[in-house]
Design a protein around this nucleic acid. Sequence first.
DNA 1: CACCTACTTTAGAATAATTATAAAGTAGTT
DNA 2: AACTACTTTATAATTATTCTAAAGTAGGTG
Lengths: 140, 140
Amino acid sequence: MRKMNNKNKTFIDKLRSSGLRPTNQRVEISKFLFNRKKTFHFTVEELKNSMNSKRSKKISTATFYNTVHALKSAGHLKEFSLENNTSCYDTNITSHHHFFDDGKVIDIKSDKITFQKLPEAPKGKKIKNVEVVIRLENNN
Amino acid sequence: MRKMNNKNKTFIDKLRSSGLRPTNQRVEISKFLFNRKKTFHFTVEELKNSMNSKRSKKISTATFYNTVHALKSAGHLKEFSLENNTSCYDTNITSHHHFFDDGKVIDIKSDKITFQKLPEAPKGKKIKNVEVVIRLENNN
DNA sequence: CACCTACTTTAGAATAATTATAAAGTAGTT
DNA sequence: AACTACTTTATAATTATTCTAAAGTAGGTG
Ligand SMILES: [Mn+2]
Ligand SMILES: [Mn+2]
Ligand SMILES: [Zn+2]
Ligand SMILES: [Zn+2]
């Protein structure tokens, strides 16, 4: 049985609401993802390397994938594809947009982009969300 | 030496301007891609299956990948990632946007979406392009 | 506490998309 | 016809991801 303080509360709740028991591995992952000032973007491989490089007892790849998937399904993470066809996860789950700058992904707050005109959804369909990617290149 | 008529001209030129000699396999691929009324979206696997199912002598996977990559590099195809992290190619190389409806990808003409506000690029950078994806779901 | 059972973790195998390799084929040129 | 460079292809390798099945762990029960 593991002692838990109020600071742990939020990220443990995210596990619970994802249908996951707060085991040690999952708590560490959820803490790493959510117990920080700024949101960020990561691939599962990056997450695994960041966390496991600091640990003696490594967390397995399958646990990273399973935990991230459950958090994503519960709506605690957003997922999108990078240009090299790998999944990138976003701890910022608010509706927002992105700059793609070479490998880097940078948030654009939702209110920084507004539309003058948007098409209607085809009949029988409705719009689930609208996401903008602005690709960057160097000046000159 | 292969007889060629004017109708072949355009898609053979796309091969030449991609640095590819117009061999039989490449001509057939380029013809399949560009010698049609409407533009379309495809994965390499779909392209390979569509073409090879009609042929006795199959074109190899590597030739599909090599040819598509060269056409893409020369700007005759656009590439983007589907939600399952596979590459989708677009014979419509004009700047435009997409509906993502389950597995289906539908073009949105550029003038159907206009912006009221767009963010500036970070210093040292400029905007290469702006692409919008509108995800659809069923009504009700 | 001892036990049960369901859930969890993990190493390793499997899969899927893509890329690399290297041998055999082909075409344009002399 | 012979030469050479480019091309095609089968197959192996790689990468990201998912699956499998065995071993580990945690709550609840008596
Ligand atoms: Mn890939
Ligand atoms: Mn994949
Ligand atoms: Zn983001
Ligand atoms: Zn398109």
